[in-house]
Amino acid sequence: MDKKNTRLKRATKLRCKIRQQKAIRLSIHKTTQHIYAQVISGDGTTTLASSSTNQSEIKSGLKNTGNITAAAEVGKSIAQKAIAAGITEVAFDRSGFKYHGRVKALADAAREAGLKF
């Protein structure tokens, strides 16, 4: 298996567990240039809140969009949007990415801003 297929296999296993719980999930995706976060309903049909480094209000305050500080800003932003939508507790779906670096920074910033997972 190559690196991408291994990541997708990890993501599938994690999403099956979250789907069984019918929990609202905070799903992330990262590329070398950007990081994206979405809060998705328990049935997986609707996006309740979203944030990314592509958005102008986040991008304007950053020098670089592919680093840990950018991920932390996205984490704060997604937490504020989720709380405004009435969501305080989510399941963290890291999409098969290992929990370090930008993924960890986003999760820590979301926790500090008030999300529980």
Results as ranks from 00 to 15, higher is better:
residue 75 G to M: 10
residue 92 F to C: 05
residue 30 K to D: 02
residue 65 T to D: 08
residue 33 Q to R: 14
residue 68 I to D: 07
residue 93 D to C: 15
residue 92 F to W: 09
residue 70 A to K: 01
residue 85 A to P: 04
residue 56 S to C: 13
residue 91 A to Q: 08
residue 44 G to V: 13
residue 57 E to P: 10
residue 29 H to G: 13
residue 72 A to R: 03
residue 56 S to Y: 11
residue 55 Q to P: 02
residue 68 I to N: 05
residue 36 Y to G: 06
residue 56 S to G: 13
residue 97 F to L: 11
residue 52 S to N: 10
residue 27 S to I: 07
residue 46 T to D: 13
residue 62 L to E: 04
residue 85 A to D: 05
residue 32 T to Q: 15
residue 49 A to E: 03
residue 65 T to H: 09
residue 66 G to F: 00
residue 73 E to L: 15
residue 27 S to C: 10
residue 51 S to I: 14
residue 64 N to F: 13
residue 86 G to H: 08
residue 67 N to G: 08
residue 53 T to Y: 06
residue 72 A to Y: 03
residue 47 T to M: 11
residue 79 A to D: 02
residue 78 I to V: 03
residue 40 I to K: 01
residue 38 Q to H: 07
residue 55 Q to C: 01
residue 44 G to N: 11
residue 93 D to F: 14
residue 83 I to N: 05
residue 41 S to P: 00
residue 86 G to M: 01
residue 28 I to H: 10
residue 45 T to V: 08
residue 31 T to Q: 01
residue 97 F to I: 06
residue 90 V to H: 15
residue 29 H to S: 14
residue 51 S to Q: 10
residue 71 A to P: 12
residue 64 N to Y: 14
residue 73 E to P: 13
residue 47 T to W: 06
residue 86 G to L: 01
residue 36 Y to A: 10
residue 48 L to E: 07
residue 57 E to Q: 15
residue 42 G to N: 05
residue 73 E to V: 15
residue 73 E to K: 10
residue 69 T to Y: 05
residue 64 N to W: 09
residue 66 G to C: 01
residue 62 L to F: 15
residue 79 A to E: 02
residue 65 T to G: 08
residue 37 A to M: 01
residue 56 S to L: 08
residue 46 T to R: 14
residue 76 K to G: 04
residue 91 A to W: 02
residue 76 K to A: 06
residue 42 G to S: 05
residue 39 V to H: 04
residue 83 I to S: 05
residue 57 E to Y: 14
residue 80 Q to A: 11
residue 73 E to G: 10
residue 29 H to Q: 13
residue 51 S to R: 12
residue 80 Q to C: 09
residue 83 I to M: 12
residue 84 A to Q: 12
residue 38 Q to M: 02
residue 44 G to D: 14
residue 55 Q to D: 02
residue 88 T to I: 10
residue 47 T to I: 13
residue 89 E to S: 09
residue 41 S to E: 02
residue 95 S to Y: 01
residue 78 I to Q: 00
residue 87 I to F: 04
residue 89 E to G: 02
residue 44 G to S: 08
residue 46 T to V: 11
residue 94 R to P: 07
residue 42 G to Y: 02
residue 61 G to M: 00
residue 32 T to P: 03
residue 74 V to H: 07
residue 63 K to R: 12
residue 82 A to E: 01
residue 28 I to F: 15
residue 94 R to K: 12
residue 45 T to S: 07
residue 50 S to G: 13
residue 70 A to G: 03
